[in-house]
Design a protein around this nucleic acid. Structure first.
Lengths: 144, 144
DNA sequence: AAAGCATTGCAATCTTATGGCATTTAGTAC
DNA sequence: GTACTAAATGCCATAAGATTGCAATGCTTT
């Protein structure tokens, strides 16, 4: 595991700027994916909105982070495993989207193989479960 | 199978207006899901943008259509199976999103059961495969 | 036919996303 | 260390997407 932002940038031939480092730091803070609006709220004072968009786009293109869309069409970002590359994302684990708190978790469960109909070729498969996460379930249990 | 828009509306206690019927007709035209922008382009002359938003929202709430987000965060709509209700959507089939033409197919493949980690309760599971659909594969084969 | 309520259309507003361009900054060569 | 080049950033304007309030219209019931 090399969570050092500077290293990650070097490995992907990206210039090392303080804005890029900050974005990586924020995303790496939590195993839970962070949404674009959250990032904007946290970094809005330091980094321009437009710059944030551009940084996130390059990170996704380079395979540094992967993007998960929630039900509202909001982008959420999480660090990729080291297996990801510019050509191909390998974030083939199941995502869990809590409908109570909105958080998106990357579960340690791999996406099951799906048999495609004739003529269809799948490059990646994405599975997202919706429900209540452990924290929210615990809160519900207390209040019940 | 009751694809009669008037019946569908009655069954869900929705008033029968020409705008609602038109929207249902358009969505039912194809087994492939239709995107919000496409609907807007097709119905823009007859129906106001805002009305379209509201109709689609009520349809989704009532379990008449289900909404699938593509990678760009654009909403796509397809008819629900008759098993869907206001309380719970049962669109638990695999979706296929063609990265060439952008179309979203509802495949006749059910979503595999996923074992959730302790504390997490899943209400619905969503699986989307990304790749090239039969039509686009055929076109590629010809030009090769 | 009239009343009451839901639905629609329009205008205004807000949020989110994108493109252009001058300025600044990181990396490289000297 | 200094100078140079290419890339990245910030700000501006603009576009696209979504939401709200309200007046007008259209259903439905009596």
């Amino acid at each position: 595991m090399k969570l050092d932002p500077v290293n990650i940038l070097k490995e992907h031939d990206l210039k090392h700027t303080k804005q890029r480092v900050r974005v990586l730091e924020e995303i790496a803070l939590d195993t839970v994916a962070i949404s674009q609006p959250e990032l904007e709220k946290k970094l809005g004072k330091e980094i321009d909105r437009v710059t944030l968009y551009r940084i996130l786009n390059t990170y996704e293109e380079k395979g540094i982070v992967h993007r998960i869309m929630d039900l509202n069409g909001t982008a959420n970002y999480a660090l990729c495993s080291s297996a990801c590359s510019e050509d191909h994302h390998h974030d083939e684990h199941v995502h869990f989207n809590c409908t109570t708190c909105g958080k998106i978790y990357c579960l340690e469960v791999t996406v099951p193989k799906i048999k495609m109909p004739n003529g269809f070729t799948a490059k990646t498969v994405n599975t997202t479960a919706y429900g209540t996460c452990e924290k929210c379930n615990a809160l519900i249990a207390i209040s019940a």
